[in-house]
């Protein structure tokens, strides 16, 4: 299991990286942390002619707060996010998701830019980015574009990135003071990609949920906002009936796939279960969870 041969370039600036990307086009692959790319290379699922290593681009790494916006450089690693007090405070949903992503050694290399560009439908971060209304900042030789996270993911391993573009950063609004969050995933083993996961946030108080975002992952070809269900839940105080209606609405919001781990119908079922658990947490009304706790 050895990768096919390729050339290697390590640009010293974003401009140089984009220039290389422009020159080599489809024959090139960017490599960030390599935690998704290198397995694919070793398995010969991909055989690029040249790798453009973003590892030297120090200015793409780091977390800054500008006013009400948190900016995360594309080369910021999962481990950086997990260990960041800024993220814990300003983007608690991101912080809640991080421990579920892979394992320590992988988090020490994997980056947010690589993760989002990879657009694995089972990955946590594409959902989280949609839940928090993040914007993906992308650049090519001609300049920058800002793409709302909800428009960024277009299919299995597919994004709105155009040829010659790369992700340079992610920007997200600082969480509101009264923000309530929920993150949970059903995965077979710790660190595995989820069978079904939900990143959710809302504001409001008690059973009244405002600005509710339900971002599902691993239930379809991309991370998806369950807008109909959210609308049902946002239409008035949440009770068991409203919750049931929202659970029913998930059938329209989501188009879960069959795969090794579970069938689409199992996924839909689990999406409903996790919704109840989310709403119980967000509303503080444990009875809505529909299950016992020890």
């Amino acid at each position: 299991m050895k990768a096919s041969a390729f050339d290697y370039a390590r640009p010293a600036s974003v401009r140089e990286a984009l220039e290389l990307l422009g020159r080599h086009g489809d024959a090139a692959k960017l490599i960030a942390g390599g935690q998704s790319l290198v397995p694919a290379l070793n398995l010969r699922l991909l055989a690029p002619e040249i790798l453009i290593d973003l590892g030297g681009l120090a200015d793409l790494r780091g977390i800054t707060v500008e006013g009400a916006t948190v900016r995360i450089g594309a080369m910021t690693r999962h481990a950086d996010l997990l260990g960041s007090p800024v993220i814990a405070e300003k983007l608690p949903l991101v912080a809640a998701a991080m421990p579920h992503i892979a394992h320590p050694a992988i988090r020490n290399r994997g980056t947010i830019g690589g993760n989002l560009a990879h657009a694995d439908p089972a990955s946590e971060l594409p959902a989280v980015m949609q839940a928090i209304d993040a914007v993906i900042v992308v650049r090519d030789a001609s300049g920058e574009r800002r793409i709302a996270a909800r428009d960024f993911f277009t299919g299995i391993y597919e994004t709105a990135l155009r040829d010659g573009e790369m992700i340079v950063a992610v920007e997200a609004p600082v969480a509101a003071k009264d923000e309530r969050i929920f993150f949970h995933e059903f995965s077979r083993r710790s660190g595995d990609y989820a069978i079904v996961g939900l990143a959710a946030r809302a504001t409001g108080s008690g059973n009244a949920l405002a600005d509710l975002r339900l971002a599902y992952f691993s239930v379809g070809d991309k991370a998806t906002l369950a807008e109909r269900a959210a609308a049902v839940l946002g239409a008035g105080p949440v009770d068991a009936t409203r919750l049931a209606a929202a659970q029913a609405a998930l059938a329209e919001d989501l188009s879960p796939q069959d795969d090794q781990q579970a069938s689409g119908s199992t996924r839909l079922h689990l999406s409903r279960v996790v919704l109840a658990r989310a709403i119980a947490v967000l509303t503080g009304d444990a009875s809505l969870a529909g299950r016992a706790t020890a």
Binding site: Y8, R10, I31, G34, V38, D53, A79, A105, N108, R109
Partner: peptide
Amino acid sequence: LDGEIVRGCLVLAVQAN
């Protein structure tokens, strides 16, 4: 790698330069 654990099979030797 630089004091942190990594997967040796997911880092290219050139990246460790």
